[in-house]
Design a protein around this nucleic acid. Structure first.
Ligand SMILES: O=c1ccn([C@H]2C[C@H](O)[C@@H](COP(=O)(O)OP(=O)(O)OP(=O)(O)O)O2)c(=O)[nH]1
Ligand SMILES: [Mg+2]
Length: 503
DNA sequence: TGACAGCGGTA
DNA sequence: TACCGC
DNA sequence: GTCA
């Protein structure tokens, strides 16, 4: 193990080095024999540390502030690239070559290890092979396995680790038009709440286009002929650029009906229709609801009203990981002989600092033979006081292949948090991972792309879509994919890391 | 003038 | 089918 | 609201 004996503290979350990157590096160091010392402990025993990994762009002042120390520790400060390159090449690189500060290292230069050619990731191997072209041609509806994807890769992996170097430092392609989309999003939400689905869809489509636009729009004529942005929306953009807001939004803010509906619909299980009904019954605020709980609210809606103040809070990334780790630990305890692949998805996987909920994907073989597993896991989590409420516990009734839990969990002294667990058999891993990583708008976008090619993309695969009057009659699986890269390749698209799927 | 992603659960 | 949420 |  290349990092054997190394005690390393990883500082992240500043100077352009994200916490997610820090987590990935830490995970890799542990996997390769190193010991990660968390910051709180590291503070008290800096002399015990072999080295500290700090952001490439950090300086002394920032590091002192993050570590809450008055003077720099004696151990070397090393760039994350040291760990990345070492793990990638499976040889220990000399930390001296990666020092952030020029202080001489007490570490002695290691003699180079016996050379091993770095094992190519399956994805790398595909790179040199010809792409399988997509087409609408009728041959497509034959169930066929892609010979390229079929070659060697049956091993699942946490692609977060596999692709770390691909995106850890890749420049994010952030939404350059947030100044516009943030306003349009309010409009979109309002229209959906008012059940004006037409305008809701219109703004949603335009927002997706604007968020993907590689250029910041600062003047009206830059809009040009962006898809889905027609005369009316162009005018709205113009107004936003001039005034920073929209008269239409201001006017809507005055509507007491909309204001109340918006409030009510934040409760899990309460949508626009129920919210509207509540308003008609005379309710105006959440407190009105709490004082006099409407009879027609079901159990789940009541639970989520009760816990509203806690559930509404966003969850710090660290806590998402803690609860995930708990859930996964119990899952593995329950099926000790299974090789369970666990991924925390949703906004967590996309690298967000805070998340609306916790989305856990569990994958293993023979899900069908373990129909009762999710039920057992949930019972176990309830017993262990991790899960406090069950909202939905279901098995995919038609085929009994995938399973979903939606509920509420918390850590011992923590707030109540929304928790989703999904279980899929291995053959759906890549599709389910992509689905559950989102974002929802990213899914809409790529699914529409597939649809326009005569295909149907779901959490279970890519299928030929033979449609008659909106009905979809589909044949078998189009192609097996084992990694998200495989899926992007199928679409002939460059791989997009999760953090760039934030549409 | 229909579609705007595609799916499962609940009532 | 309407509604709701992932 | 926008597009095919
Ligand atoms: O309408 C939806 C909602 C969700 N998803 C997928 C993508 C999404 O990323 C994932 C998890 O859903 P969630 O509602 O938790 O969204 P999130 O992206 O994790 O954001 P948040 O931070 O609000 O949880 O499920 C969809 O495909 N369609
Ligand atoms: Mg989520």
């Amino acid at each position: 193990m290349i990092f054997d004996g190394y005690k390393i503290c990883v500082l992240s979350g500043f100077a352009g080095f994200t916490k997610m990157s820090g987590e990935i590096i830490s995970k890799n160091i542990s996997k390769n024999g190193g010991t990660i010392i968390p910051l709180p402990q590291a503070r008290n025993q800096t002399s015990n540390l072999t080295l500290i990994i700090v952001p490439e762009q950090s300086d002394e002042k920032m590091i002192l502030k993050v570590m809450n120390l008055t003077s720099l520790p004696s151990c070397p400060l090393v760039s994350p690239n040291w760990a990345i390159n070492s793990t990638n090449s499976k040889t220990l690189h000399d930390p001296n070559d990666y020092q952030i500060k020029k202080t001489e290292l007490p570490i002695k230069r290691q003699s180079p290890q016996t050379y091993q050619s770095p094992p190519q990731s399956p994805f790398e191997a595909y790179k040199t092979l010809p792409l399988v072209p997509l087409s609408n041609s009728p041959e497509m509806n034959r169930t066929q396995t892609n010979p390229i994807l079929n070659q060697n890769n049956t091993r699942l992996h946490d692609d977060l680790l596999q692709n770390k170097d691909k995106y850890m430092f890749t420049k994010e392609q952030p939404n350059l038009n947030e100044h516009i989309t943030s306003v349009l999003e309010i409009l979109m939400e309002n229209y959906f709440l008012l059940r004006d689905r037409g305008r809701g869809f219109a703004y949603r489509s335009a927002i997706i286009v604007l968020k993907s636009h590689p250029e910041k729009i600062i003047c009206g004529d830059q809009v040009g002929n962006l898809q889905k942005v027609g005369k009316k929306i162009k005018k709205k953009i113009q107004e936003i650029l001039e005034t920073g807001t929209l008269k239409r939004v201001k006017a809507m803010d005055e509507q007491s009906r909309l204001k109340a509906i918006k409030e009510f619909s934040k409760i899990w299980g309460v949508g626009s229709a129920t919210a509207d009904k509540l308003f008609t019954l005379g309710y105006r605020t959440l407190d009105d609801l709490r004082k006099n709980i409407p009879q027609f609210l079901n159990d789940n809606q009541r639970i989520c009203l009760e816990l509203f103040d806690e559930i509404k809070e966003r969850i710090p990334r660290e806590e998402v990981k803690e609860i995930s780790d708990q859930v996964v630990e119990y899952a593995k305890l329950l099926l000790p002989n299974k090789d369970i692949e666990a991924n925390t998805c949703g906004s967590y996987r996309r690298g967000k600092e805070t998340c609306g909920d916790i989305d856990i994907l569990l994958t293993f073989d023979d899900v069908l033979e373990n129909k009762l597993f999710l039920r057992e896991l949930v019972d176990y989590l309830i017993e262990k006081k991790v899960v406090t409420h069950v909202l939905i516990l279901s098995e995919n009734c038609k085929k009994h292949e995938s399973f979903t839990f939606e509920g509420i969990a918390k850590k011992p002294d923590g707030l109540h948090r929304r928790l989703d667990i999904k279980i899929y058999p291995r053959k759906y891993y890549a599709w389910a991972l992509m689905h559950f990583t989102g974002s929802a708008n990213f899914n809409r976008s790529i699914r529409l792309f597939a649809k326009n090619k005569g295909l149907k993309l779901t959490d279970e695969g890519l299928f030929p879509a033979i449609r008659s009057h909106g009905e979809t009659i589909c044949g078998g699986n189009l192609v097996e994919c084992y990694t998200e890269e495989d899926i992007f390749r199928l679409f002939d698209m460059p791989y997009k890391p999760p953090e760039q799927r934030d549409l």
